[in-house]
Computed example of a mutant assay.
Amino acid sequence: MADLSDYQIDWNGFLFGAGTSYELVRLDGWIDSPGLTNGSAPRTARHGSWPGGMRGQARTVTATLEIAAGEAMGEAIRALRAATPIVRSAVQAPLAIRCDGETLVVGAQFAGRVVPIDQPYSMGYAPKAVLQWFCADPRLYEPVEQSVTIGAPAGGSGGLAYPLAYPLVYGTAPVPNTATCVNTGNAETNPVVTFIGPLTTPRLVNSTTTRALVFDLDLDDGQTLIVDTDRGTVLLNGTTDRRNTRSNLGVPIEYFELDPGPNDLSLLAEASGPGAQATVRWKSASM
């Protein structure tokens, strides 16, 4: 992604806005809130509704540009067309926009282009082009990814020995290691969590949201379990699907989020060894 100046747009490596032949005239759908889905349900025996949560719908971003390229107008329009093809696949590309000193990024698909060829254009006046992007995820992300690493639970020893003998000695439980992840935006964000073995039944607990990820498997020394809570994927060593190891003691993968502000995370396991840890990566999100 380019180092943007104010009122510039970087679409998949192509630059619009200040300092280019494509001056930004108007931007809609960027810092506006997206459409909302209201989870409220009507009350059956009285007025009103049972209040439900609000969820953001897909975001549509529309940019109005004035193409000021002088004698190179045709070349500028051809370059614009080449940079905004209609792609049949569902693959998204980064759309980054900087306004008032703040750069935010969203995954987007190009959704439309209007470049009017009218009488003023034929007389040499700069035409206004309208470009549109569809953003399935309405959250706007900080461009810089943050990360923390949480070490294996410390201490813990002993346990019941059989045959039982009185007085019983129960041993001590391991103390979880913790770290704080700060989401500086105003919307929940979904992290990517990488567990590194040796770990037995790894668990990551967000005590701020009281939600946890729990997996019923053993990770050998150096093995990784990569959990993408946005895509809902669980990959052993980055390749083998292990989503079926998710335990019902934790939440569904997509429900594990970082709330706005600080989130206190702890790594737990039934057993762990030297080098065991969890790495959490995230981008702060706003809506």
Results as ranks from 00 to 15, higher is better:
residue 137 D to L: 03
residue 49 S to Y: 05
residue 6 D to Q: 12
residue 20 T to S: 12
residue 127 P to E: 13
residue 223 Q to K: 10
residue 185 G to V: 11
residue 86 I to L: 13
residue 92 Q to P: 00
residue 15 L to N: 04
residue 230 D to M: 04
residue 29 G to W: 04
residue 140 L to C: 00
residue 29 G to H: 05
residue 114 V to T: 14
residue 272 S to H: 07
residue 192 V to W: 01
residue 224 T to K: 00
residue 193 V to I: 15
residue 206 N to M: 03
residue 172 T to F: 08
residue 187 A to S: 15
residue 61 V to H: 01
residue 205 V to W: 14
residue 8 Q to E: 13
residue 142 E to A: 13
residue 213 L to S: 03
residue 262 P to H: 10
residue 87 V to E: 11
residue 244 N to F: 14
residue 79 A to S: 12
residue 126 A to Q: 08
residue 234 V to L: 07
residue 220 D to C: 00
residue 132 Q to A: 15
residue 109 Q to L: 11
residue 254 E to R: 14
residue 287 M to G: 03
residue 266 S to M: 06
residue 92 Q to T: 15
residue 197 G to E: 11
residue 229 T to I: 07
residue 58 A to N: 03
residue 86 I to C: 01
residue 120 P to H: 11
residue 171 G to W: 11
residue 100 D to M: 08
residue 224 T to E: 06
residue 75 E to M: 09
residue 228 D to V: 05
residue 169 V to H: 02
residue 198 P to D: 03
residue 71 E to I: 09
residue 80 L to Y: 02
residue 257 E to H: 06
residue 209 T to K: 03
residue 269 A to S: 15
residue 68 A to N: 11
residue 158 G to D: 11
residue 78 R to G: 05
residue 113 R to E: 12
residue 223 Q to E: 15
residue 82 A to N: 05
residue 231 R to K: 15
residue 115 V to A: 01
residue 155 G to E: 08
residue 206 N to G: 07
residue 149 T to P: 05
residue 193 V to A: 01
residue 150 I to M: 08
residue 4 L to C: 02
residue 121 Y to A: 10
residue 254 E to I: 03
residue 287 M to Q: 09
residue 186 N to R: 09
residue 129 A to D: 10
residue 282 W to L: 07
